[in-house]
């Protein structure tokens, strides 16, 4: 199971390298054809490269710390079976800490539902996991500025809450019979094994 995941990761990495190779090749060909474009292309690339190198290592350290210090059980313990609007805000707050791609959150969401957490909270948790990551907000702040970041963050929180309540209206307050993990051999919530994939 774990080896399979590592193999997949390696494959994805090779695919990314190939993508970089293709882009580099296209850049080289285009610049050979239009040498006068060299300056604008490189100066734009250089600006962004410097900006990213200034913040990326720090962002990665933050994400690494979150993934190691905030185990999945902690999330389930805090959110399972809770209700009320306060729990939805808590769900957003808790969803904003851990890292890793969204599909890591699906099994956690499934076990939350099985434990009787309200649907609106689980939707809020999933959405927060998807788009209110703290390291992500920091990168947004760096590149798009405080106004953009704060406006989008506020609107996202408001609409995520509304969406959770709307979905709850449609499917009901509780949904204990979700399918859950497709692979029954795997423990329901795996901790410590999670590695940040981004």
């Amino acid at each position: 199971m774990r080896q399979g995941a590592m193999k997949n990761q390696r494959k994805a990495f090779l695919r990314d390298l190939l993508f970089l190779g293709v882009v580099a090749l296209i850049t080289a060909v285009l610049l050979l054809m239009f040498p006068e474009k060299k300056d604008p292309v490189f100066s734009a690339s250089e600006n962004f490269l410097v900006e990213m190198l200034l913040i990326m290592p720090a962002v990665m350290v933050l994400m690494g710390l979150f993934s190691v210090f905030v185990p999945d059980e902690l999330i389930v313990r805090y959110l399972g079976g809770d209700s009320g609007v306060k729990s939805m805000l808590l769900a957003i707050f808790i969803g904003a800490f851990p890292t890793g791609p969204l599909y890591v959150a699906f099994p956690i969401a499934a076990s939350l539902l099985k434990k009787g957490a309200r649907v609106a909270s689980v939707i809020a948790f999933l959405s927060a996991w998807a788009c209110i990551k703290i390291p992500q907000e920091l990168v947004e702040l760096q590149f798009l500025g405080a106004g953009f970041m704060l406006a989008r963050l506020t609107l996202t929180v408001v609409f995520v809450l509304a969406m959770g309540l709307l979905i709850e209206r449609i499917v009901g307050r509780e949904l204990r019979d979700v399918p859950g993990i497709p692979n029954p051999g795997k423990p329901e919530v795996s901790s410590g094994q999670k590695e940040s994939k981004r």
Partner: peptide, 19 residues
């Protein structure tokens, strides 16, 4: 361990970032 995870994720994201 967090630092190892950080280093791995950085390497992992590097090709896409450069592209």
């Amino acid at each position: 361990r967090a630092l190892v995870v950080a280093a791995k994720s950085f390497v992992r994201i590097l090709p896409t970032m450069l592209a």
